[in-house]
Structure formats: structure tokens, C-alpha cells
Design a protein around this nucleic acid. Structure first.
Length: 788
RNA sequence: GGACUCGUAGUUUAGCGGCUAUAACGGCUCGUUUACACCGAGCAGGUCGUCGGUUCGAAUCCGACCGGGUCCACCA
């Protein structure tokens, strides 16, 4: 739509523009001579529509992308869609009311695919409506095409990296106690655990010392694990228990004899000072058992129920077993005291089930060896804001076990291995394999005891069983930048583009996405995989609370766009706060207020366009030069801050300039001179005004184009400028005294107030006013403006 | 327990050593002036969380405390 036809800026006006833009594929990537600026965007899950956080953060990324294009970069800004892993499985289970255990693997995967196909790609439409300038909105083989994380190409790369790491021994299989999600029936990594405050009881249980028959009290929150106790410890400094050294304790109810030792792990203040060391209470127990060379007793099965080791508790779920044993201890007078406490309990991030610790064979990726390397790489990347680096460093420091990467789930990348009689077949990297329903390719490498013994072709008589486990979703996601930069697919491009320029992401996935990506990048390339990392905070409601369905405070970006438009949403996102600094509080009222700014801009532009633009640059009057210099000053500020991913500081100034300086004061001041209806100004003076009006408008829309591309482009078209191909201006600092703008504004306000007090209209003449001496240079404009 | 972050008009917020502390929304009073009533002009509204310190001068720097939010660790 043409500027002249727009009465008000509406969502309908936007729809026409964004639909056209989406079809144009204007930002397709072509490998040229320009430097590359690449953004490793976070692929959203497609099973739910995008929320306001997505809308806002992708708008920011679009600011970055559009700005960098204006700075002469070839920008790679791809759209990825996440379709792997547990969220997909869980929403499939919910949608069709099925479980994989009931309907079987193959049917379940088909159901997941069906769900994904039915879900469609609403989010792609939302991004287009927002005016996000992705490299492409189309699928295909081109660089920057829309990609799916469950595509054969993506999964083939995931498997290729698995194969390489496996052959190097960086990935290995081992049977050890690990975090177990009893609901999802799979091992999970530390990073997938969150802690919930759950009410629990701290039970003081009476034990007996074998040698002396004395009674001792041991406190525990997990009495159902008494049957797995292998040792009782106290702190070496704890004089109360010195006499127990070398003696034995008898477990209550189970009557098992366990040694009593001193160990610094026990603290004197907590409980009674005596600790029962059980296998699989938590990961520390596991470490303790390894250190003491104790044999763990596994009493909890993978279905979350107690087994025969638990005696009379066998068959009960952990929670029920806990209740039952407390009841039994109480009945036998073995419970000295019981306190209600709130226990920080580890739960599975995805299923919210309480994590158990059980022993399973799983694949692990060695990550403890490279902690120092990763810390060094973390120091090489630039963080915006700088203090976000600490989130990553803290996590790296606390990594204490290898990363379990195998999952006993279904809709994910299969582990590309086959087994037969102690031999393992490893396929050649590059293709997508589904081992649980395919045979290994003939040229697969065969390993026995970790050594190559030929290929599958050499063992024609062997029957191969495909691996049924799949890979942790983070094992896929952590190569997103490698995939986007065409790793192992387009070597020329990869060599030029790697490392990626920017990783934009939320603070809550530093320990997962950022950490794992850094780790995988390091293992593949030995380099830091990003130059810049931009960490953003959250979008909350007006009171600073997280948006959640249960609170009923969720704001749907699609509704916002339909009601107020994307430009208002983007402008609000830029102006309302610095997302890298703190959470952004959102209210619909504030967004709707920015619609006014867009309309103001449209009206200012219409005003300017009614004049003819002088063909030659005239000599500029002091007034015109002053306002031009003022905007030059903001230009310098914009350039400096945009480079630091700060669009907030300059946009505040630009917005203020539009309303308070350009529209309120400058336009009023030069209106008469631009019209020059009575010929009271010279042709040159009038030209100066019209030249300056155009120059200020052009500069303003250029500076704001990354943020409000639709409105500025519409104006650009009317001015004959294609902002999409426009270079970002460099500031020319002027010599005007910029403080004079404030003085002019103050004088104007003074006159306006005076006229109001006298009850005369603003364009009536006013007698007896003298222009202050310091505003002498602007006297002619001031006189004309106020009819003095 | 360790760390980070934030407390400024009714609400959201700018400022982060020096003009009378920003602005928007909301409220109030005027007003259709030829870019704009999705507007204009103006008004009211603040002991800048509390208490100390540094300084000629503190919303701004330092310390303590109070109160939000977040991350990490731990709670046998």
C-alpha cells in the first residue's frame, strides 16, 4: 500500500506488506565477497504456537540481522523448527491418548509424525507476520533454508558426529548408576533435572550397635532405602561417636550388619551426626560407594518400584514404600522422632517425576577431560551482557560426571550401532540410519573389544541386532551451528563461515544448549563455536511474574499482532527495556501505545512529502543546521550501541526525537518557511527548510529501519529509497550548540502557555514579546511560528 | 551456603557523581491551529527501599539492613 493511501497504520496494512515480503525471498543467501554474519537461531518446538517470549526475542534477532545487512554483511539468519524429543512425544501421547508402551514403537513413531504433520507450521506464519527477515521461508537445499531437526539430513549429521566420537572412544558405553526418570522410563542427564520444594519428613530411626547393644539414632528422609545401607559414618571430629569406630550397626527391620566408620562427608550439626550410606539415594552416595569400594544394592527397579532387596516393601512404588516402612518402624517403636520438612527434591524437567538413581547400561560422552579447554573457549567468546559468561563458567566448573547421551525413548535420532555376539557394527558416517528396523550397511566397521576387526561384509553369517536406544535431544541441538553452517556438506562455505557469529538464547538454557554446543563444537573443531553470545532474560507479565497458563496471564503474540500490529510490538520490545539486562514486563497497554508512534511517523512523513524536495542542496539556515546536527549526534549513538546489541538506548532517543523535537518543535518552527505562502522568506531559506525536512525524515527512517521495517520501508518507497538495500549512515558531527534545542523548546512552551493564559488560539498574533538574545539566530523562524 | 540482579510518580520505566529527577500509560483542565482527534497545548502526581559513610555535592559511589526476582551448590 502507498503511504498516501494510509490513513491509519493498521494490522491490515501490515498483512499486505508481510505477505508480499514472505513471498519475495529477498534475503536469500549468496556466497559472495562480503563478510558473513551468521545467527544460530534457537529452533522453537512446533507443537505449540509461539509465545510472546519468542515473538520478542526473534524481533531482537531481526534487529541484529537487518542492522548487519545495512553494515554490509552477508547475513545468514535461518529458521529452524524443533521436532525432536520428549516434548513431541508427550504432546503426541496427550493428543491421541496413547502411550508407546501400549501401542509399540513403530506405531508410536507414526503417531508422532502424524501429530507433527497435523500441527502444521503456524509458527512460521507468526514469524512472517512479525516481519522477521529470515534468510528464507522455504524448505530446500539452499543455504539458510528452513530446517527441521528431525529431517534425515539433520539426523544424518547427528549420527555422523556420534560415529566419529564413538570410534575415537570419546563416546563409550558403561553400566553405572545414573538419574532415572521412572515416568518416562529413561536415563536423563544432570542438566535435565530441576529441583522442586516438596514436603517430606525427616525421620529419626533407632538402630542398634552389634558389639555393645547400644541404641543409636540416624536421621533420614529416605527410610525405604535402609535395605541398601552399606555403611554408617560420622565425622572424624565428632567426639560423641569415637567409641563406635570399627564396630558394626544393625539395620532396623532388616537386621543387616554394616560397618561404622569415620568420614568427613558426615557433618556434626546435621541430624544426629550419624549418616546411613545407601546406594542410590543421590549422586553423592554413588561417589561414596565408588570411593569406599562398596557394592551397591539396587532396591529400586526401573519402573520405580521396590524389588526383592527391599523385603516386605517389594512391589511397592517408592513413595508407598516410604509410607509403609515409616508405619512399620513406628509400630515397632523404632521411630524416635519425625519432623516435617520441605525437601528440595530432584525432578525430571520434562515429566516432573521425582528422579531415582538406578543402574543401567548407557552411552556416555567424556566431558570431564575438557573442562579446562571449555573454560578457555568460554573466555574467548564475547558475551552480551558480559556477566552472562559467569552462568556458563559456573556450570562448567560443577560438571562432575560424563554426559549420559542415550535415552530409552522413541521420537529422536537413533543411535547408529548394531550388535552381534560381542561385536559392534559402526556404519560409515553421512547417511541416516534406523538400526532398530534396518540391517547394517556392508561397509560398516566391526569392532570387537574396541578394536577394528573388519567390516560387516567380512562376517556374512552374523545376525545383527540394531540398537534401540536413541540420543538425548541436546545431542542433536548442540550441533545446530554446525548444521546451519553446512558442516560436512559444503566445505567451502563452512571454512568461510565458521565459527558462527552470534548465538542468541535465553539464560535458562545456558547449562544445556550453550554448554553442549560449546562442548560439541570443541570436539569437532577445537574452536570456540561463536564469536558473540547474546543472553536474554524473560518476558513477564506486568507484575513481573512468569507467564503461565495456570496464572492466566499469558499474552498471545498472534492476538497482539492482529489487534495492534507487529510494528507496535517490535517498537515496544525495543523501547520498553533492555532484554539483556533484565526481565521485560509486558502490558498490552504499553504495546498499544506504540501504535501511536507509528501513526505519528506516518503523519510526519505525509507532511514532509507534500513539499517538493529541492534538487540542489541549499545553504542551510541556523535552525535547520541545528536540528540536522542533533540527529547526527543520535546517529553516532545509534551506531555505537547497535554494535553492542543495544537497540534500546538509541531507540529511546529516536522516539523522543520524533515526538518531542521533530514533530513538536521543528515542524512548527519551519512550517511557515517551508510553505512560504506570503513570500516572507527568501527562496533559499524556504529551500533550506524543505531540504532539512527531507534529510531529517530520511535519516530517521534509516536509523529505525531495523526495528520498524514495515513503516519505514513504506515511507522509504514514497521517498524513492529502498531501505532494504540501504547502507547504515555514518555520523557527521556538526558544530551547532545542541543545547539550543532545549532553549528553543522552552521558549515555545513559554509562548504556548502565555497564549493559553490569554485565552487566544495558538496561531493568533501576540504583541510585545522579545526574543531572548541567545536565540537570536532563530529569531525569524520563532517570530513566524508564533506570529510575534 | 555461594553468586547475580533489581527496588525511582497510581502503573511501567529513563538517568548510574553536578541543571528545577526522564518519559509513556492512566488522571485532570483547555482546545477542532490547513501532517496527525489513534491529535494538540497545559496541569497535578516523586522524602529516587531503609539507615549509615565517602564527597563541596549522592537516585547515582561504598557499607549494612529490608524487600522482590534468578542461577548454582547443599540439606544424609
Amino acid at each position: 500500500m502507498k503511504l498516501a493511501d494510509i490513513k491509519h497504520w493498521t494490522p491490515e496494512v501490515e498483512k499486505e506488506i508481510t505477505t508480499r515480503w514472505r513471498a519475495l525471498e529477498r534475503f536469500r543467501f549468496t556466497l559472495g565477497t562480503k563478510p558473513i554474519y551468521s545467527i544460530d537461531t534457537p529452533p522453537p518446538y512446533i507443537n505449540a504456537p509461539i509465545h510472546l517470549g519468542h515473538a520478542t526475542t526473534y524481533s531482537y534477532m531481526d534487529f541484529f540481522a537487518r542492522y548487519k545487512r545495512m553494515r554490509g554483511f552477508d547475513v545468514l539468519f535461518p529458521l529452524g523448527l524443533d521436532r525432536n524429543g520428549l516434548p513431541i512425544e508427550l504432546s503426541t501421547e496427550k493428543k491421541y491418548n496413547i502411550t508407546p508402551h501400549k501401542i509399540g514403537r513403530e506405531s508410536f513413531i507414526e503417531a508422532c509424525e502424524k501429530m507433527l504433520n497435523e500441527t502444521g507450521e503456524e509458527s512460521v506464519g507468526s514469524f512472517a507476520d512479525l516481519g522477521i527477515s529470515f534468510t528464507s521461508y522455504q524448505h530446500g537445499k539452499h543455504i539458510g533454508a528452513v530446517y527441521h531437526t528431525d529431517s534425515p539430513e539433520y539426523r544424518a549429521l547427528t549420527q555422523a558426529t556420534f560415529v566419529n566420537l564413538y570410534l575415537q572412544g570419546i563416546i563409550y558405553e558403561d553400566t553405572r548408576i545414573n538419574n532415572w526418570d521412572p515416568k518416562l522410563q529413561t536415563t536423563i542427564a544432570d542438566s535435565e533435572i530441576e529441583y522442586h520444594e516438596i514436603p517430606s519428613t525427616f525421620n529419626h530411626v533407632k538402630w542398634k550397635v552389634k558389639e555393645t547393644g547400644e541404641e543409636i539414632i540416624i536421621g533420614t528422609t529416605r527410610p525405604e532405602l535402609i535395605c541398601t545401607c552399606a555403611m554408617v559414618i560420622y565425622n572424624p571430629e565428632d567426639s560423641r561417636y569415637k567409641h563406635l569406630a570399627g564396630k558394626h550397626a544393625i539395620t532396623p527391620l532388616f537386621g543387616k550388619e554394616v560397618p561404622i566408620k569415620e568420614h568427613p562427608f558426615a557433618s556434626i550439626e546435621k541430624g544426629s551426626g550419624l549418616v546411613m550410606m545407601c546406594s542410590a539415594g543421590d549422586t553423592h552416595d554413588i561417589q561414596f560407594f565408588r570411593e569406599q569400594k562398596l557394592k551397591p544394592t539396587i532396591a529400586i527397579e526401573k519402573n520405580g518400584k521396590m524389588n526383592d532387596h527391599a523385603g516386605f516393601l517389594a512391589g511397592l512404588k517408592v513413595k508407598d514404600a516410604r509410607a509403609k516402612i515409616i508405619e512399620e518402624l513406628n509400630a515397632q517403636g523404632l521411630l524416635a522422632k519425625q519432623e516435617n520438612i520441605v525437601h528440595r527434591t530432584p525432578v525430571s524437567e520434562r515429566s516432573k517425576a521425582e528422579v531415582e538413581f538406578i543402574e543401567m547400561p548407557e552411552f556416555y560422552l567424556r566431558q570431564q577431560d575438557c573442562k579446562e579447554d571449555l573454560l578457555a573457549l568460554a573466555r574467548k567468546m564475547k558475551f552480551y551482557p558480559e556477566n552472562a559468561r559467569k552462568l556458563l563458567e559456573d556450570w562448567i566448573h560443577q560438571v562432575s560426571i560424563d554426559w549420559p547421551i542415550s535415552r530409552r525413548r522413541y521420537y529422536a535420532t537413533p543411535i547408529p550401532l548394531w550388535h552381534s555376539d560381542g561385536k559392534i557394527a559402526v556404519p560409515p558416517p553421512g547417511k541416516y540410519y534406523v538400526p532398530w528396523k534396518e540391517q547394517p550397511p556392508a561397509d560398516s566397521t566391526v569392532l570387537e573389544n574396541g578394536k577394528k576387526t573388519g567390516t560387516v561384509r567380512d562376517f556374512p553369517s552374523l545376525a545383527w541386532t540394531g540398537e534401540t536406544r536413541v540420543l538425548d535431544t541436546w545431542f542433536d541441538s548442540s550441533i545446530s551451528e554446525l548444521y546451519v553452517l553446512q558442516y560436512k556438506r559444503n566445505d567451502e562455505f563452512f571454512a568461510k563461515a565458521y565459527p558462527a557469529t552470534l548465538r542468541p538464547q535465553g539464560k535458562e538454557i545456558v547449562r544445556t544448549w550453550l554448554y553442549y554446543t560449546l562442548l560439541r563444537g570443541h570436539l569437532e573443531t577445537k574452536k570456540a563455536c561463536f564469536k558473540d553470545v547474546w543472553i536474554h532474560q524473560h518476558i513477564t507479565d506486568e507484575q513481573g511474574r512468569k507467564m503461565s497458563k495456570s496464572l492466566g496471564n499469558v499474552i498471545d503474540p498472534q492476538k497482539i499482532i492482529a489487534k495492534h500490529g507487529a510494528e507496535a510490538l517490535r517498537l515496544w520490545a525495543a523501547i520498553e527495556g533492555n532484554l539483556a539486562k533484565g526481565d521485560l514486563r509486558c502490558s498490552e497497554e504499553k504495546i498499544s501505545a506504540e501504535v501511536k508512534t507509528i501513526n505519528k511517523l506516518i503523519n510526519v512523513a505525509k507532511f514532509v512529502l507534500q513539499f517538493e524536495k529541492p534538487k540542489k542542496t541549499p545553504a542551510l539556515t541556523a535552525t535547520d543546521q541545528l536540528f540536522i546536527d542533533f540527529l547526527e549526534n543520535i546517529t553516532a549513538l545509534a551506531e555505537e550501541n547497535y554494535e553492542q546489541y543495544d537497540f534500546f538506548t538509541p531507540m529511546l532517543k529516536l522516539r523522543n526525537f520524533l515526538w518531542e523535537i521533530f514533530a513538536s518543535h521543528y515542524l512548527e518552527l519551519v512550517k511557515g518557511r517551508a510553505y512560504n505562502r506570503d513570500g516572507e522568506f527568501s527562496a533559499e531559506e524556504s529551500d533550506s527548510a524543505r531540504h532539512a525536512l527531507y534529510r531529517l525524515l530520511e535519516r530517521w527512517i534509516t536509523l529505525c529501519h531495523p526495528i520498524i521495517p514495515q513503516a519505514t520501508s513504506t515511507i522509504g518507497e514514497a521517498l524513492g529509497i529502498d531501505l532494504h538495500a540501504c547502507t547504515f549512515p555514518s555520523a557527521k558531527q556538526g558544530t551547532s550548540d545542541l543545547a539550543q534545542i532545549d532553549e528553543i523548546a522552552a521558549f515555545n512552551t513559554h509562548i504556548w502557555k502565555l497564549k493559553k493564559e490569554k485565552g487566544i488560539s495558538l496561531n493568533s498574533p501576540l504583541e510585545g514579546i522579545t526574543i531572548p538574545a541567545n536565540l537570536g539566530a532563530f529569531a525569524k523562524d520563532l517570530k513566524a511560528c508564533h506570529k510575534l
